[in-house]
Write a protein that binds this DNA or RNA. Structure first.
Length: 745
RNA sequence: GCUGCUGUAGCUCAGCUGGUAGAGUGCGUCCUUGGUAAGGACGAGGUCACGGGUUCGAAUCCCGUCAGCAGCUCCA
């Protein structure tokens, strides 16, 4: 701290190399950079200041606040802080360009995001990709003018007066929500009033000149504050880098990533298909995809046996009352396939309710007429199937809806199951349990159905019917912590076996302000403490996220990214005190008294569909041998070797390998190419030479020739590679080169 | 669910302001009997997503439905 009275006000600035510089009070990051060297001064774009343990990026020309640690941000595409700064500034440049070209534009909010930036704008006319070039040209012009970003501050009152004069609802809202007594603005230029300016917290790069490589990528619709009922906005996305080569590389990476898309590869390799006739979001596993899934399930089943799980099988449908007890129905009604009501009365009320709700959303005359039609039908339904409680003849539309809703809550029917837990709970409850039976672990590859919004459905990663590798453990309070840890470990082991290491762990906690959760405060407190402890003990890095819990309990989620950077939840481990209570589950303790078990819900893969979808992208379709739908291809050099090739094919098949045989009259080059495109792990070429010496010529799908080996040696090597669940080179040293075969990742 | 874009052969796509439906690839047959990233010839394949409308005439223009894609919103 620098005292205001101190005469020779010198600030101590600690640099990342550990040295401390003393600079005059009022010095800026730019001054510090210049002191260190002219090269750094040229490259510097901002300062990262740490004081009292909290860090902040500031403009290059802002005076340092006092003694501090200072990291000088330079124009580097490798530093996320620098990049984010650049992108934020580029967003301002783009906003100015858009305002120039479309003067009606009202700016809303323009932050940097993970791989670029966007600006939300309110503009009646649609911006289309055809406009991008014009906007980019305008941006280039602004950049060429080499204008500084100038910051100025106004008091809250002054700022609000200014913004009200300008008349932008959005900026006024932003200002009102901003913290602090003063609000800052940034002018893209030397002087206020002469150039574009925007309410902005900053910081920014020193000048538009720093913006070198940028691209507007797309435009889409968003809503003010993300509220679909609020003003629709256009969100213009772009990205920026300090170096043109970085931008080029980034765009190339995006192209590459598209080729890994599981929807593309899944089709090309015949892994799965989705039929419009069957339904949107319902995956049909083709024979080759099924092999991958079965291998994964077999692997997990073996792991579960070691941990004393018991496999069970239960139906895909259950009574509505079951899900009323569990709480799945009707709380999540909107994301379920409609309930199947059993009686004519139930079906009628269901239809009436839908009609009444539709009329409810209408207004004016339409609503009037609808209401009387509904009333007439209500009367007819009551006439036919008896009175509906709470429905009198003069009931308003709203009262009618409420009464119909209430009546439906007791009607019998069935529901496609949205989760497996109620069925497993019924298995637990089917006989009395002693504490000696616990932990009681039930596992099932259980298919569940959820009516996802139409716009959300995507390939295998977001679907309406999916199979969870579900299990439920019924444990005593003493067992909870240990069982949780074992379960988290299992999940991590499963992911690491597949080579999925790039995941993040999220501990999902209850948002106490929300009403979507069931159960007592006390139970939640215990459950949340249990998952925290388990996450800590397991040694993973995790982040706690409020509002990410299930309705019945907190959870530990394993989240991975797909090839285009979208995050998906895979494995999950959840603690649940509530469903055992709702179903009144008990076990007999050592004290001969009934006790309430605690449930753990867990699924290491999460959903087989989503997991395999992501795995396809992870491996870009080139699966390790143990998972590969076709492990070995046999191809003849000419038809003269067909008999020998058949013999090899039979030999491999009887060794339990998945083999494809190509006896066609095509040349060996194209045959091999086709097998490589199909990501067959090893290609055995057989010709007259091989037939004569009783060998096969072994090649991998990368195009490398491993060499001629006897079939027996190849089978043995294949088996050992399968057993190791690795990516391999068949245990044979690569021929004539010391280069190791890389993993196909 | 919302907004925008798209839907033509198994796949990838062309088909202009309306006038008898095309390519590459794959597939089949034949020729070639071959040595490691695509040999040649011929042939089959389409209710132009579906339903309406405009028009003498619609793959093409208009409306609706369904599906896909991108983003938003949601995800027990």
């Amino acid at each position: 701290m620098v005292s205001p009275c101190s005469r020779r006000a010198l600030l101590k600035v600690r640099l990342p190399d550990g040295n401390t510089l003393e600079v005059a009070e009022g010095s800026t990051t730019a001054d510090v950079a210049a002191t260190i060297g002219p090269g750094l001064a040229r490259a510097a774009v901002a300062g990262h200041i740490t004081r009292n343990g909290s860090g902040q990026v500031v403009d290059l020309n802002r005076p340092l606040p006092g003694d501090c640690e200072l990291r000088i941000l330079t124009a580097s595409d490798n530093d996320p802080d620098s990049l984010s700064l650049l992108r934020h500034s580029t967003a301002h440049v783009m906003a100015e360009a858009i305002c120039k070209l479309f003067p009606e534009t009202k700016l809303v909010y323009g932050p940097p995001v993970e791989d670029g930036f966007y600006y939300d704008i309110d503009l009646p006319q649609s911006i289309t990709p055809d406009d991008f070039t014009r906007i980019e040209s305008e941006m280039s012009r602004i950049i060429a003018e080499d204008r500084p970003f100038l910051r100025y501050e106004l008091s809250r009152e002054e700022a609000l007066v200014k913004l009200r004069d300008e008349g932008s609802r959005y900026k006024i809202d932003n200002a009102e929500r901003a913290e602090g007594e003063t609000l800052s603005f940034y002018v893209t230029g030397q002087q206020r009033g002469q150039h574009f300016e925007d309410l902005c917290r900053g910081p920014h790069v020193p000048s538009t000149r720093v913006v070198k490589a940028f691209k507007i990528r797309q435009v889409s619709r968003s809503f003010y504050r993300g509220d679909v009922n609020d003003q629709p906005l256009q969100r213009v996305y772009g990205t920026a880098f300090y170096k043109a080569s970085s931008l080029k590389e980034y765009l190339k990476q995006l192209e590459e990533a598209k080729k890994r898309d599981h929807r593309v590869i899944g089709k090309a390799l015949d892994l799965f298909t989705i039929s419009e006739q069957v339904g949107s979001g319902l995956v049909l596993w083709l024979p080759k995809g099924t092999i991958i899934r079965m291998e994964l399930q077999n692997f997990l089943t073996e792991e579960m046996k070691k941990l004393d799980y018991q496999m069970v099988m239960t139906p895909h449908i259950g009574q509505l009352d079951l899900y009323r007890t569990s709480g799945h129905y009707p709380y999540y009604q909107d994301s379920q396939y409609p309930a199947m009501f059993e009686t004519d009365r139930g079906k009628s009320i269901q239809g009436l309710l839908q009609l009444a709700q539709r009329v409810q959303s209408q207004s004016g005359e339409e609503r009037e007429e609808g209401s009387s039609r509904v009333a007439a039908m209500v009367a007819a339904v009551q006439e036919a199937w008896g009175d509906i409680a709470g429905l009198t003849s003069g009931a308003s539309l709203d009262e009618t809806v409420d009464a119909l809703y209430a009546a439906l809550a007791t009607e019998p029917g069935y529901l496609l199951r949205p989760m497996n837990c109620p069925h497993h709970i019924q298995i637990f409850a089917s006989r009395p349990h002693s504490y000696r039976d616990l932990p009681f672990r039930l596992a099932e590859y259980g298919t569940v159905y959820r009516y996802e919004q139409s716009g959300e459905i995507s390939g295998m990663t977001r679907v309406r019917g999916f199979t969870t590798d579900d299990a439920h453990m019924f444990v005593t309070a003493d067992q909870l912590q240990g069982e949780l840890l074992t379960t988290v470990d299992l999940t991590r082991r499963v992911l690491s076996t597949l080579g999925l290491t790039d995941y993040r762990v999220r501990v999902g906690l209850r948002d106490s302000a929300s009403d979507k959760y069931v159960g007592s405060e006390e139970n939640w407190r215990k459950a949340e403490s249990a998952v925290r402890i388990a996450a800590n003990e397991s040694g993973v890095d995790f982040s706690e996220e409020v509002g990410e819990a299930c309705f019945y309990g907190p959870k530990i989620d394993f989240v991975v990214k797909d090839c285009i950077g979208r995050s998906w939840q895979l494995g999950t481990v959840q603690v649940d005190y509530n469903l055992p209570e709702r179903f009144d589950l008990t076990y007999v303790g050592a004290d001969n008294a009934p006790h309430r078990p605690i449930m753990i819900h867990r699924a290491p893969f999460g959903s087989m569909e989503r997991f395999v979808g992501l795995l396809i992208e992870h491996f870009a379709g080139a699966f390790p041998l143990w998972l590969s739908p076709v492990q070995v291809g046999v191809a003849t050099v000419s038809e003269k070797s067909a008999a020998y090739a058949r013999e090899i094919h039979e030999g491999l098949k009887s060794a339990g390998l998945r083999v494809e045989l190509d006896l066609t009259g095509e040349k060996i080059g194209p045959k091999k190419q086709r097998m490589r495109d199909a990501k067959i792990n090893y290609i055995l070429v057989v010709g007259e030479k091989e037939a004569a010496e009783r060998t096969v010529n072994v090649n991998d799908r990368e195009g490398r020739t491993i060499g001629n080996k006897p079939l027996g040696a190849v089978v043995e090597a294949l088996r050992s590679e399968i057993a190791s669940k690795g990516h391999g080179e068949l245990g044979f040293p690569p021929p004539g080169t010391s280069e190791r075969v890389r993993c196909h990742t």
